[in-house]
Nucleic acid binder design. Structure first.
Lengths: 231, 231
DNA sequence: GAAAATTATTAAGATTTTTTGAAATTAGGC
DNA sequence: GCCTAATTTCAAAAAATCTTAATAATTTTC
């Protein structure tokens, strides 16, 4: 579940935003000035920040600057100032979006979703240009959607392919069954453990010489699955 | 140099945007309908796309959907429709931002910069949190769920791993058996002393050269356990 | 130095997690 | 609409891990 920190000195606004975002399944953290926001960020895993400009103690602009010194989470600035100059300033100092009050809550929700998609799914320039991945004798060409093991072509179904691609793209990194499910199916994983497990088995049958002793697709007991990094 | 594709059937708008973005040092590619945009994307390296909604042949919404099937570049939708529903739709199908006409060119430039910064510099969730902890020759990579002692890989069970992670994350700090239990199991510790003790022993067997004289995982008599801080 | 309190050790039974085989359902191509 | 391939579900076997309880070894207290 994704956590969103909402920061505004107007508690009514914070509460209103909370209601809308909770409906979308996000966990909401709250702060009422910039200092508090920094504190919450330090102590919690936060995936996105919505922050007002005008606040006591530390305003949203200064807070954004401070946060950007060490974090790259998406920041949406909220402001009563609809002056273009303010928007431009906010966007230039590191914010990802700038929404002016009064705003349609549903538009804010859509912008939150868009930012989180960019941050958690779409990724960045460095990784998106790569289209061929390799781990030992296992190779995935994402342009041709082809998988080969020791130069022999292997035929995977779409779901199998996507799971393997996720794991190979992040080789070494462990993914829980839920993470895999949510990442591939784009929906909440409830009781989907077996589904993923069966796909894992099918992938192993196709890419492993001996599925009982997988060379590539390994289980990390109690945690999830990973592709063994080639050394 | 970053390349930006500007796509609108109104050539004047394309030209105007071109002027502003060129001043910022971007290379501008142009298209005048969705089909052309897809074509240009296929044949060029494009780092960001600005696309109008209403266009002949293939509109901006459909084009965005098509592009998202295989590309993750930032997309800014431009539109004369300022209806909230249109904005929400655009953002939900994969756009990164939605700007309504008429717009301040400088705000558009700021939004372009913001998106490119996210895409080319700030990166995404996966890479921003490298979670590696170290104490002397003991190292925990929480992303790979791997523990090494003097560069030798050590295999821990989930509970063992979590206990060690807790202690290493807070190295030097002493945790009582109850604190450890409640922190790992997330339930009240009643008569669970032995359980934790057994796990501690197993961890020592795996990470210590001589479990009887632990270098890392030490007992603080009458209080609890800690990981000796490295100096 | 002995008793009390705390921590360490061991191994077996209980539990959880993963793997597996097969059947049922769904989706896509012709 | 039928046929094939893909996906999901179910249930049980296998593997790994966790807990328990009984006992031993320490350290502290008196």
């Amino acid at each position: 579940m994704k956590s969103i920190l909402v920061c505004d000195d107007d508690r009514e606004i914070v509460d209103a935003i909370e209601i809308y975002l909770q409906q979308e399944g996000y966990r909401i953290l709250k702060a009422y000035d910039g200092e508090q926001a920094l504190q919450v960020l330090k102590e919690n895993e936060v995936h996105l920040l919505i922050i007002d400009v005008m606040m006591p103690r530390l305003d949203g602009i200064r807070a954004t600057l401070k946060i950007r010194e060490e974090s790259s989470i998406p920041i949406i600035i909220l402001s009563a100032k609809s002056e273009d100059a303010d928007k431009i300033l906010g966007l230039n100092i590191g914010a990802d979006d700038y929404v002016t009050k009064p705003f349609n809550p549903l538009e804010l929700v859509a912008r939150v979703k868009s930012q989180l998609r960019r941050y958690t799914q779409l990724g960045n320039a460095a990784e998106s240009s790569k289209r061929v991945y390799q781990v030992g004798g296992l190779m995935i060409n994402d342009e041709l959607k082809e998988v080969t093991v020791d130069d022999a072509l292997v035929k995977l179904t779409p779901i199998e392919y996507n799971i393997l691609l996720l794991l190979v793209k992040n080789q070494g990194k462990v993914f829980s069954i839920n993470q895999i499910y949510e990442s591939i199916w784009n929906e909440d994983a409830i009781g989907a453990d077996n589904t993923v497990a069966v796909h894992i088995r099918h992938i192993r049958e196709k890419i492993e010489i001996n599925p009982k002793e997988p060379r590539y697709l390994k289980v990390v007991w109690g945690v999830g699955y990973k592709i063994e990094k080639s050394k």
